[in-house]
Design a protein around this nucleic acid. Structure first.
Lengths: 335, 335
DNA sequence: CTTGTCCTGTAAAACGCTTTGGGGTATACT
DNA sequence: AGTATACCCCAAAGCGTTTTACAGGACAAG
C-alpha cells in the first residue's frame, strides 16, 4: 500500500505537505498541491482509514442497529427497504455502514461498547425492542443517534406518519361507502398505538360506530394470526364489510380464510393492507394499502444523523414525520 | 475513552504488559495478567479498533458486496436471508461487516479501492453482475474473497446445489404422476443455466419428453413476466399439467393468471416454485417448492472466508455445494 | 535598511496499540 | 559459588495520519 510517505519522497516534499495537499488545505501552493494530487493518483494512493481514524477520532462509519425478535430485521421487507435507502444516502455523503450487534467473538459487549470500540460516528436504530436496557443505554450515550419509528426525548426520531396514513386509508374506505370497518392491528408497540388511535379518531370524525369486536389483535408479518382474526370477524353476526390488516404480508393469511369460505375479494368482502410492499401490488386484485415511504425514511435518517455528527451546533432534536401515500388498488369495493 | 496507558498507570506496569495481559500472551505472570484484566474491565476499557488495525493490518471487518440491478440486493428475501446468516456467523467469530460500494462521498472508487482503503480482511460477493470489471478486479486481487452462487477459478465459491434441487423437485412431480411438465426459468445467469440443465437432464433420465414450448423464459422476482409465460403455456393445445416457476415470488404472477382463467390449483393445474421463502408456505394451497438453505449458505461463506483469512496456509480454493430441501406443499396434485 | 505581513512549506508530536529485543530476578542445576 | 534456565516484565520503535508551531523567503510599506 502506498502511503503519504511514498508520495512525499517522490515529490520531494514533507508528509505534512502531502497531507495538506490531499485534504485541500489552503496553506499549500496551488501548483504544488495539484502536482502532489496528481502523483498520488498516479501511484494509486488510498488513504488509510484506520490511521486517519486513530488521529482524528472520526471513522466515517455509521452503526446500524437492526433486529427483531427473530434476530433478523434484515429479512423484513419494510426494514430492508429503509436500510437500503439509508445506505445509499450515507454512502453518497462518504460514510460506510457497519452492523452493530451485541456479541463479537468471545466477547459479549453491549451495543454501546460495540459502537465505542468501532468508534462509530453515529448510529441509526430501528426495528428493535426499544425497551431493551442495552438499547436505552446507547440512546442515552454521547453518540449521535437517530431512531426510526420510535421517539426518545433525547434524540432525533424519523417517523412514518402512521396516524395520517391510517386516516387516509380509513377515509378512502369510507368514501367507497363502507361503514362497517374492522381493524386488525399488530402487537403492542408505539407504532401500533399510533395506528389504533388513528383508526378510532378517524372513525369518530367520520361518525362511524366501531363495535369492540371489530378491533382485533394479531401479529405483524404473521399470516396465521391474521387468519385467525379474520375467521373471528367473518363469523360475527354483523360482519364488517371491510377488513384492515396489520400489514400487507399478514393479509395473505386473511386472504386464505376468505377464499376458504368461498368469499370473493372485493365483491363479498373488502380488504386493505399496510406498507405497500411489492407483493401487495402484484396480488389479484391489487391490494388497497398505504405505502410507507421507505426511501424518504432512510434518507431522512441518514441526513439527520450526519448533520448531527458534522454540525452538532446546528443539529436539533426533532421528530421528522414522513408521509405515507395511499395506493388505492382494487381490493375495496364501492358500495 | 480509557486506553491501555490509563490501565498501565493504575496498575503500575507498562503498556506492553497491559497489551499482553489483555491479549492473553503467555509471558505475563498469571496473577498480574488477571489483575490487569480485572482493572481493565473495571475501568471500562475497550480496545481501540483503529489503533489495533493500524498496527496489525487486521481490521476484523469483512466487506459485503451485495447488489442487483435495482441497486438493492437487500430487498431480495433470498439474499437478505443469506446475508443475515453470514452476519450471524461472522459476528460469532469476532468480525464486523461493512457494505462495499463504489462511491464514497465525492470519491468514486472501485470496489477494490474501497476494500483496500477500509482494509477489509476479506470480502463476500453475491447478487451482483459478476461480469462487471470492477467485480472481476476485486476477485483477482490479493484480498480473500468468497463468492456465492458463482464460480471464479481463483476463489472459493459457495453454491446452492441448483442441479440437485431441480432434480429433486422434478422427480417429485414425476412421482405424483405428471409427465407434461413446463419450466419457466429466470434471466440468463450461471444459476439459471444450472437449473435449466438440471431440468432437461432429469427429464431425460425419467424418460419425459419436453416439447420446446414447455420451457419458457421470464425474469426472477418478477410476477408480470411469469404471468405472461403462464398465459402462453395455458394456451397451448397440449397444456402442461404442472408448471414450475423461476422462484416463489414470481409464481404470484402465474397464480393470478390461473385464477383469472377460472382454473384451480392443484385440481386443474399443478404448480411448483423455487426458494422456499416464507410467502410460499403461507399461500393456500401451500406451494410445492425447494428451499434453498440460506442459513448454510451464509454460514459456509463466513466460515470459508474467515478460514482463508486466518489460516491462509490450510485454506483451499474449492466449491462448496449446499443442498436444498424439498418442501412438498400441496400445489402438485397426485394424478 | 528595517519591520511587518503574506505565502509556502516543514519538523515533530501525537493518536493507541503491538511487538521486538532485551534485562532483571528467582529458581534449579553443576 | 557459579552458571544456566525459566519466568516476568519493560523500553522503544513504529503503524499512517493530522495538526500545531514555527521557519524561511518574498515583498511591500515605512
Amino acid at each position: 500500500m502506498v502511503s503519504m510517505k511514498d508520495i512525499s519522497l517522490k515529490c520531494g516534499v514533507s508528509v505534512a505537505t502531502v497531507s495538506k495537499a490531499i485534504n485541500g488545505h489552503s496553506d499549500i501552493g496551488k501548483h504544488t498541491a495539484q502536482h502532489i494530487r496528481n502523483v498520488a493518483k498516479e501511484m494509486g494512493y488510498l488513504p488509510n482509514a484506520a490511521a486517519r481514524a486513530l488521529k482524528t477520532n472520526r471513522t466515517y462509519n455509521l452503526g446500524v442497529l437492526f433486529m427483531d425478535k427473530t434476530q433478523s430485521g434484515l429479512t423484513h421487507e419494510y426494514f430492508s427497504a429503509v436500510l437500503d435507502s439509508f445506505k445509499v444516502e450515507a454512502e453518497r455523503r462518504g460514510y460506510d455502514i457497519t452492523f452493530i450487534s451485541n456479541n463479537l467473538g468471545q466477547y459479549t459487549m453491549s451495543y454501546l461498547e460495540h459502537c465505542r470500540s468501532r468508534a462509530c460516528d453515529g448510529v441509526v436504530i430501528a426495528c428493535v425492542n426499544f425497551n431493551d436496557p442495552a438499547v436505552v443505554e446507547l440512546v442515552r450515550s454521547e453518540i449521535p443517534v437517530v431512531t426510526i419509528d420510535h421517539v426518545f426525548n433525547e434524540k432525533t426520531a424519523i417517523l412514518s406518519n402512521n396516524v395520517q396514513a391510517v386516516k387516509d386509508i380509513v377515509t378512502y374506505i369510507y368514501q367507497q361507502g363502507h361503514r362497517k370497518i374492522a381493524f386488525i392491528h399488530g402487537e403492542d408497540t408505539s407504532v401500533t398505538q399510533k395506528r389504533v388511535a388513528g383508526f378510532y379518531r378517524t372513525c369518530q370524525e367520520l361518525g362511524i360506530n366501531v363495535p369492540e369486536a371489530y378491533v382485533r389483535s394479531a401479529l405483524y408479518h404473521d399470516p396465521a394470526s391474521s387468519a385467525e382474526a379474520t375467521r373471528a370477524l367473518l363469523s360475527l353476526s354483523e360482519r364488517p364489510t371491510c377488513i384492515m390488516y396489520p400489514d400487507d404480508f399478514s393479509f395473505i393469511g386473511g386472504r386464505n380464510v376468505i377464499e376458504e369460505m368461498g368469499l370473493c375479494i372485493p365483491e363479498d368482502i373488502s380488504v386493505a393492507g399496510f406498507d405497500g410492499i411489492y407483493l401487495s401490488q402484484v396480488l389479484q386484485p391489487v391490494l388497497t394499502t398505504v405505502r410507507q415511504d421507505t426511501v424518504s425514511l432512510g434518507k431522512e435518517a441518514a441526513t439527520h444523523l450526519i448533520t448531527s455528527i458534522e454540525q452538532p451546533q446546528i443539529a436539533v432534536i426533532e421528530q421528522v414525520m414522513v408521509a405515507g401515500h395511499l395506493l388505492p388498488g382494487k381490493s375495496v369495493m364501492k358500495i
